[in-house]
Design a protein around this nucleic acid. Structure first.
Lengths: 208, 208
DNA sequence: GCATAGTTCAAACGGACGTTTGAATGAGAG
DNA sequence: CTCTCATTCAAACGTCCGTTTGAACTATGC
């Protein structure tokens, strides 16, 4: 067994990840979280300080492995010279969607959580997500613009925003799909399909 | 002047559109809406019945012109035979983004509202949006599959989901304000850029 | 044994929430 | 003017919210 005992702090993060991913930040109460985590309501403020600090901690924990892997891949690519757009897109997307594929683990829950936070209606929450991912993401935008010298920089930035959006879309729909589109994809092929979709759009769908 | 007097009901719908689009459904209180609309708190339940019914009415009002125009365009295209993928994408995207361009009118507010509701964290709210748009959207999926016979139907459905997601993204402008990507796009060119992006992805980024 | 620091607990805080009530107000018809 | 009916209003309903309190428990070091 990998989990000998789960501390209250870990249980709170796990349940928060799940519930915030289902109902959003405003739509999820601390009481719902603490009941599901079998913890006292005061435990949140003891371990984290506030509801928003709990969210921040959960975002940081969920994003950390994704950011690490993205940095590692980008370092590796840049060490070999100028990467292609496809290499960059793959190095960006795959770490984000690897989570989705880890069925049985906490991966899909974390992926949905990340995707939902990235699209939260409140700008304050979205900025909280951006604060956790900005540094490495900005490097990808610059690298993409260098990889696509024939496209206008604003146009590459447009494509980059679309890439962020589509990744968050598929992360957040990892568990619950919209009616009518339930069986759209084999989850195992999701990353490859999304990468192919984006590569085609970046290579041929941007203004010169 | 186009607005002789605005009824309480209209003011509530207008303010609800604005506030729900800023803070989301759960993050926006009826009191905040009624204060901004200079209406009594009881007016919501008098005119609509409940908070959720107010949201439903606002969604229906905002979506109606978009759905009508999409239907009209699809009818017109299909009358001339099998439309191309680009024609279908254009006929789907442009009605949704026309709203964004109507600066000075209520268009951008309605667009943001629609985009946010489509991505609301709560599945119940997302289904409320889907209920208003499903019929005509489903026709577009079928037409796209017919226009792309060489691509697998699931693959076209995948692209279709991506199209819905990117449209909602740009309607809500959720990520275009991310740091470093503020001035990504001339709003006037947004529709053309998004269509070109999607056409390239549909034509060359889907599995056979 | 005692002391100590870390953690958990039941209970309560003030405030904001969506909703409901019943009376007051308004305009239009007869 | 009077009746009627739609609308608006202040006030209150009970419930849930995030947060705080201070005491109780637990484990470890001495």
């Amino acid at each position: 067994m990998e989990t000998p005992v789960e501390s209250t702090r870990e249980r709170l993060l796990n349940i928060a990840e799940q519930r915030f991913g289902e109902g959003g930040y405003e739509g999820t109460s601390l009481r719902a979280i603490t009941v599901a985590a079998a913890a006292n309501i005061a435990a949140v403020n003891y371990h984290f300080g506030s509801k928003e600090a709990l969210l921040r901690a959960a975002v940081a924990r969920a994003m950390a492995p994704v950011n690490t892997e993205r940095r590692r891949r980008l370092d590796q690519l840049e060490a070999k010279g100028q990467p292609t757009a496809e290499q960059l897109i793959r190095a960006f997307i795959e770490p984000g969607l690897d989570l989705v594929l880890r069925r049985g683990e906490r991966g899909p829950v974390a992926a949905r959580f990340i995707g939902r936070v990235a699209f939260d209606p409140s700008q304050r929450i979205r900025e909280l997500y951006a604060a956790e991912s900005d540094p490495v993401e900005a490097r990808y935008l610059t690298a993409l613009q260098a990889a696509l010298p024939r496209a206008a920089p604003e146009s590459v930035a447009f494509g980059y925003v679309n890439m962020l959006g589509l990744l968050a879309l598929h992360q957040s729909q990892a568990l619950t799909r919209a009616p009518g589109t339930e069986d759209v994809e084999d989850p195992g092929k999701l990353a490859e399909n999304l990468i192919a979709f984006l590569v085609a759009a970046f290579d041929r769908g941007l203004r010169a």
